[in-house]
Design a protein around this nucleic acid. Structure first.
Ligand SMILES: [Zn+2]
Ligand SMILES: [Zn+2]
Ligand SMILES: [Zn+2]
Ligand SMILES: [Zn+2]
Lengths: 173, 173
DNA sequence: TAGTCCTGGATATAGTATAACACAGCGCCC
DNA sequence: GGGCGCTGTGTTATACTATATCCAGGACTA
């Protein structure tokens, strides 16, 4: 399947994103006494291969083809479960896929803008949204466990222009 | 995990919920020129069997065991797709399941409170939430296609219902 | 009546996730 | 050292969710 290049690995120094994510993860796990093993670290790196959602079986393929590692679905899912527990990655429910957390240090609710074109996921942590949700929940006596806010649509890049074309000023309707 | 029966079909006249949903659906489809066939109507009825999320294969089993109908996955998924298009049901992404829409007449964004205990899904249509989301999206030039707000937790009943407190307050739209 | 579209039956397969068992390494306590 | 339990991973099998494809029959149209 032809996946559009999940945003911008060309448009910025993505190696920096990855290195930073790994460094923070290392630090965080050490502090917590959690074991960021070679496999787990590698899976985290693979999730960070782009800013787009990454599927478990995609990771599986990479582990097999690039690392020569014998791997089966549980190998990947267990690593992903660990990374989720440590809040180093998030699961995008509406896509059955995973994305690196942009700020693992400060716990936050999951709010995402997902571009259906370039597949970039932008993580939000907006108080307005979570406050509005908490307000409704409270009003109904609902005790919040986990929020999932996933907004699909078109990102600024993909909404206003097509790849390769000039940057046209577009007046949003 | 002990699953309590999804919402209180005993605590209220659920037949009324079902009848109402079917009546509204009939009316709406007629007005739209959409064909609410026997199968589609039956699937809608099955989705409305509870106020909890219902899986596609659950519906499939019911069709086979209760209706004696020969049915395969596509049978169910096609009916579900139709019902979703007509906005008679919603898909709960985080559960791979479906739930009847409480107000198919007025189009609205999907916002749900999902009880992890009794599995009741309460649909919201809160302007505060969607406004906060739209605001964030706008701020980032993101063009919203479809919102998904799914909040997991404990409903009033299942959380810490105090003895003697009123229970089961369910606001319809 | 013939043509066309819509619906749904039937078969096969794709995609996502977990159960269950095995085994190796490590720390611990005797 | 030897038994023990714990964690992480390998291995196999299976469950669960969803779609692709082809076809038959009925409804609508001209
Ligand atoms: Zn980057
Ligand atoms: Zn985009
Ligand atoms: Zn009811
Ligand atoms: Zn409940």
């Amino acid at each position: 399947m032809a996946k559009s290049p999940a945003l911008l690995e060309a448009d910025h120094d993505h190696r920096h994103c990855v290195d930073n994510a790994l460094a923070v993860a290392t630090e965080l796990c050490q502090r917590r006494g959690a074991r960021l093993t070679v496999l787990r670290r590698r899976v985290l790196e693979l999730v960070w291969r782009s800013h787009g959602p990454v599927g478990a079986y995609e990771i599986l393929d990479w582990l097999r083809s690039e690392d020569g590692r014998t791997a089966a679905p549980p190998t990947v899912y267990r690593a992903l479960d660990f990374l989720i527990e440590q809040r180093l990655i998030h699961r995008i429910e509406s896509l059955n896929a995973f994305v690196g957390c942009i700020d693992p240090i400060n716990p936050h609710t999951g709010q995402y803008l997902i571009c259906r074109d370039c597949r970039t996921v932008t993580e939000l942590d907006d108080d307005g949204i979570s406050h509005a949700i908490r307000r409704q929940a409270q009003q109904r006596g609902f005790q919040i466990g986990q929020q999932t806010v996933e907004v699909h649509g078109l990102c600024e890049n993909c909404a206003g222009k097509k790849p390769g074309s000039e940057i046209g000023r577009q007046s949003a309707s």
